[in-house]
Design a protein around this nucleic acid. Structure first.
Lengths: 184, 184
DNA sequence: GTTGGATGGAACGATAGCGTTCCATCCATA
DNA sequence: TATGGATGGAACGCTATCGTTCCATCCAAC
C-alpha cells in the first residue's frame, strides 16, 4: 500500500479529530479530506477506534527525553518546558482533552494512551530518584503525588484555563513545585 | 408547562451526556429516556447547546460555600474536601471532562461554564486574602498560579489518572499545596 | 363540567455516516 | 513494455437524528 496515502489519512484523521472531536469524527470526511477513497481507508483500518489506537501508538515513539540536568531544579525546569512545548500545539491540546474525556467510554483508547502515561511516569520516576541520590529529596516522598504536582498545574493552565505560560510563569511553577516536592 | 416533565428531561439530558458524551448526545434519545414526546422538549429548548447552557446555569446555583476555617491549612483542607466531594460523582466527572473538551468547539458552553469558574476563582481569592490578612502568606503571591495549584492536582488525580484520593492523600495534598503557596 | 393548553406519540422529508462493493485508472515492479 | 495490485470515485442499503407537524388524550383551573 502506498505510504503517502497512509500519511495523508493519518494527518487528516488527527486534523479532523482536533476539529470536531472524536465522537463526531466521520471516517468518510477523513477520507475526503485526505483526497482519498473510502475504500483505501477501510483497507487499512477496520474502524475508528482501531485507527485511533494504531495512530496513537505510532506517535508514542516521538516522546522527547531529557537527560540529567545536574540538579532537581534544572530537571524540573526541563520537564516543564518540554511539557509546555507539546501542550502549546493547538492540535495536540484539543486531541488530548478530547482523549481524556473519551477514555471513559472507549476502553481501546485507554490502551492506546497507556504508553504515553507510562513514559511520562518513568521519566518523573527517574527525576525523583536522581534527586534522592543527590540528597535533594527525602527517600520517603510519595512518587505518585509528586507526579500529580509535576504535570497537573501546567496542564490545567494550558488546556483548561488557557492562561499565559511565559517564562516567568514557568519559573514560578519551578519554585512552587520544588517546594511542594520537598514537603511531600 | 409541567414541572415534572422539565425535571425528567433535565435528568435524562445529564444522564445521556455522561453516558455518550456531548457530541453524540441525541435529543431524540433524551426525550425517549425521559418518557416524553420530542415535542415537549423542543417546546422548551430550541437546540442542544441552548439546553446545555440553560441547565448548566441552573445547576450553578448549587455551589457549596465554605466560610473561614480559622487558618490557611484548614481553609485549604476544606476546599480540597469540597472539591473532592463534587468530583467523586461519576456523572459530574464525566460531564466535566467532556465539557472541558467541548468548550473549544462550542463557545456557548464556555459562557455557561463561566459562572462556575468565577465562583471557584472568587472562593480561592477570599481564601488567599484571609491568609494574607493572617500573615500566613506574603501579599505579593501570584493569585492565578495559586489557583492552578489548588485545583489542578486533585482534578488530575480524580478525573485523569483515576487514582486514590483517601484522607491520607488529601492531607499530603494540603501539606504540599501549603508549601507551594508559601513559595509562590 | 367545561374548557384550554400541555401532553405522548407518530410521522414527515432531509441529511449524514455506516461498512461494503464494484470498476476503470494508475503506477511500480519485473 | 507488460502485469498485477492499489487507487479514486461512485453507488449500494441501512440506520439514526434532525427539526417540524399533526392529533387524540389528558388534566388542572375555572
Amino acid at each position: 500500500m502506498r505510504v503517502e496515502v497512509t500519511d495523508a489519512l493519518s494527518r487528516a484523521f488527527f486534523s479532523e479529530w482536533s476539529r470536531v472531536g472524536y465522537a463526531a469524527l466521520s471516517l468518510e470526511r477523513v477520507a475526503k479530506a485526505a483526497g482519498v477513497g473510502k475504500a483505501a481507508l477501510y483497507r487499512r483500518w477496520p474502524s475508528k477506534a482501531a485507527m485511533a489506537s494504531d495512530l496513537l501508538s505510532r506517535v508514542g515513539l516521538t516522546l522527547t527525553e531529557t537527560g540529567d540536568m545536574g540538579s532537581l531544579e534544572a530537571d524540573v525546569r526541563a520537564l516543564l518546558l518540554a511539557f509546555r512545548r507539546v501542550l502549546r500545539h493547538r492540535l495536540i491540546r484539543r486531541i488530548l482533552t478530547d482523549l481524556l474525556a473519551e477514555i471513559g467510554r472507549e476502553p481501546a483508547l485507554e490502551t492506546a494512551l497507556r504508553p504515553f502515561q507510562q513514559a511520562r511516569r518513568d521519566r518523573v520516576q527517574q527525576l525523583i530518584e536522581r534527586a534522592i541520590a543527590r540528597g535533594e529529596l527525602a527517600a520517603t516522598v510519595d512518587r505518585e503525588t509528586i507526579l500529580d504536582f509535576l504535570v497537573a498545574p501546567l496542564y490545567w493552565r494550558l488546556a483548561v484555563t488557557k492562561g499565559r505560560s511565559d517564562i516567568a510563569y514557568i519559573e514560578r511553577l519551578v519554585r512552587m513545585t520544588k517546594a511542594a516536592m520537598a514537603a511531600g
